[in-house]
């Protein structure tokens, strides 16, 4: 464990945790890519996972989503493992089916078991939500990078998930589209979702996140409320990251 591990769980102590990561280890090729990672996340709100490239942020999201198995440790959810429609993941590189935008959303609804007669109405709502109406019939794979990210984001919201895992969801979006995605995130939180957001965008973390988990080389180096993290980062790694220095 790192020496400097500043903890500030003021807002979480009062509530039951929704997700608990216990001593997670994920190793490949003799290297611990995620190294004894433990954290506790409350029921609703936004936690930002920050840290330099290769810190293990995307791997952590995959571990939480159950897409990869930890070599050690476990992820526990309040009320047991969530059903697929209760948890949605937006990948760092959007994965869209070779179909129209509408068919991509419909595929998710269908896989979640939404009956056909309910899907048409739901689709119209979702397209409106993501301002995707004009793109609905376009093949998803010819859309611009930012448009694809919007489709992936809306697809993650099709079932109103309890847990929303977002891996740099606005990385290639223009300011207006970024604001639209951030509005969707805030709305999901208002509906009671627990969001884990990976971002390198300090402004975005300050706008959205309640608290920050800062990772470095697979380890949790700092956990603090967003306000405190940006005002007075405790660890040398976080200070260097925020100052824009290269962390190796």
């Amino acid at each position: 464990m790192p020496e400097v591990l500043a903890m500030d769980f003021a807002e979480e102590i009062e509530t039951e945790p929704a997700i608990v990561l216990e001593d997670l280890v994920f190793a490949r090729g003799g290297r611990r890519l995620v190294d004894r990672l433990s954290m506790t996340l409350g029921p609703a709100g936004v936690t930002a996972l920050m840290g330099p490239n290769g810190a293990g942020k995307s791997l952590t999201l995959r571990l939480i989503a159950g897409l990869i198995e930890p070599d050690r440790g476990q992820v526990r959810f309040a009320g047991g493992d969530p059903a697929p429609q209760e948890m949605a993941l937006v990948f760092q590189k959007p994965v869209l089916l070779r179909r129209s935008v509408r068919a991509n959303l419909d595929h998710a609804l269908k896989t979640y078991g939404v009956p056909r007669r309910e899907r048409a109405g739901r689709l119209a709502e979702l397209l409106a939500l993501g301002q995707l109406e004009s793109l609905a019939e376009r093949p998803a794979r010819v859309l611009s990078g930012g448009e694809q990210q919007r489709v992936a984001m809306v697809r993650a919201l099709v079932a109103g998930p309890r847990y929303l895992l977002l891996d740099e969801p606005t990385v290639s979006l223009d300011p207006q589209a970024t604001a639209a995605i951030e509005a969707l995130v805030s709305r999901a939180v208002a509906d009671g979702a627990r969001v884990i957001l990976v971002t390198h965008d300090r402004g975005q973390a300050q706008r959205l996140a309640d608290d920050i988990r800062f990772l470095h080389k697979g380890r949790l180096v700092e956990a603090a409320s967003a306000a405190r993290f940006f005002r007075a980062p405790q660890s040398a790694e976080a200070r260097a990251y925020l100052a824009g220095e290269l962390l190796l």
Binding site: R62, Q85, L89, T111
Partner: peptide, 12 residues
């Protein structure tokens, strides 16, 4: 290879 994680996360 491309779709695997998406489809698993959807519970296919």
């Amino acid at each position: 290879i491309e779709y695997d994680e998406l489809l698993r996360s959807l519970g296919s």
